[in-house]
Nucleic acid binder design. Sequence first.
RNA 1: GACCCCGUCGUCUAGCCUGGUCCAGGACAAGAGCUUUUCAAGCUCUCGGCACGGGUUCAAAUCCCGUCGGGGUCACCA
Length: 432
Amino acid sequence: MVRVRFAPSPTGSLHIGGARTCLFNWLYARAKKGRFVLRIEDTDKLRSKKEYLDEILDSLNWLGLKWDEIYYQGQRFALYREYAEKLLKSGAAYIERSEGNKEAVIFKVNPQKIKIRDLIRGDIEFEAESIKDQVLIKSDGTPTYNFACVVDDATTDITHVIRGDDHISNTPKQVLLYNALGFALPEFAHLPLILGSEGGRLSKRTGATSIGDYRKMGYLAQALVNYLLLLSWSPGSNREIIGIDEAMQIFDIKDVNKTAATFNLDKLNWVNNQYLKKENAQKLADAVIPLLIERQYIREGDFDRNYIVALLKLFQARLARINDFLDWADFFFVEDVQIDPQAQKKHLGADLSREFRMFINRLDGLKEFELQTIETSFREMVKELGIEAKALIHPIRVALTGKTVGPGLFEVIYYLGRERTKQRLMRWVSST
RNA sequence: GACCCCGUCGUCUAGCCUGGUCCAGGACAAGAGCUUUUCAAGCUCUCGGCACGGGUUCAAAUCCCGUCGGGGUCACCA
């Protein structure tokens, strides 16, 4: 049975690169009907933090990457000790004393050729001469990464080690340990790295944001997963939008490419929009309501949920992120609407008092304040005035929303309501 | 620097293994247009690439070699 693992260290939050590595492991386990193991590499007691652990677990759950088993290296020190003793006994390792009478266990590296087989890259050869003797157990008693990694992978029966490219040079060191310990080698697969916008590792500057931050910015988990799927893997047949359930059916580690991919926010935004427009507005409301409260656009326990759902439907198709709704739909929640100066100059420069007043009168005269009656009334009016509809539509939109972009004008008027529409138009009507 | 990996439009990719169907297909971005109402949605179109040089071959994005370019690793961090 296939057994794979993802091994984050709780010294920071989960980032794009880690999430992708985890996703591919998870996918491979599901595709092969195997098991997905999570291993927490918390041997560095100083840098490991409970908050990070919680955040990583939380992000993984949010992405839908559930693990079948979980191990903590911090609880397995006795095991590493045991295997270190074994190597000491067989003469493969030796003890080095440092000042303070502290002891470290060091693995002797003998010159030889080390060939590793990689499922993605084929065979890679290394010369052991370029590898120094390896510390197994540090003088503080904790195991080193490479040693703990090998002991854990072997003793938890990991069949496929799928990890980032940056571990390629660790692999020969680990192979040496597998051999010395008498463990069978797993299959290796090294995923290409995800690069930042300016080349090189993803960093804060170049777009490395934690998964939790993407969540806060209003990205959907399925969209983020879908985007990650598109980096270094492709479902084929020119498809861009694919869900994790479907990917699970056709994913194979052999199909992953070798080339590093650059993270591109524009495309993530596009993918997110694809999901957003199909998402149930009720669910979007669940996400957006707390944000509206936080921004004091609505008060907790005192708002009309159906109204918010209706507004969401108006904007849904245009949103790149859920949070864009807050800025784009602000005029529905705020009375003192900020008018974009450019928009004002362009559409409200001329005096439209007469037209606005006429429209206000017409709105007052409507027995039924409905989408259809509003539009009909407006169209009749411009016809009577002998002007183009857009000559008035744009100024009215700016007066009502402060923006030149937004949903259709009649929807805006309908959901703003008769009174608020009149008030906002009145501001542009001169008293003389 | 040493060792290792990689190199198809600006970006993500299909094609490469099993050479001809590829004067290289799709997506994002950009530009243009359409949408009796905007665009940040939708539709249509345009721009743009096999890193370079040598082979092998009737034929190369696909195979081989070299160059150049990018990235990774060289810790008692993981």
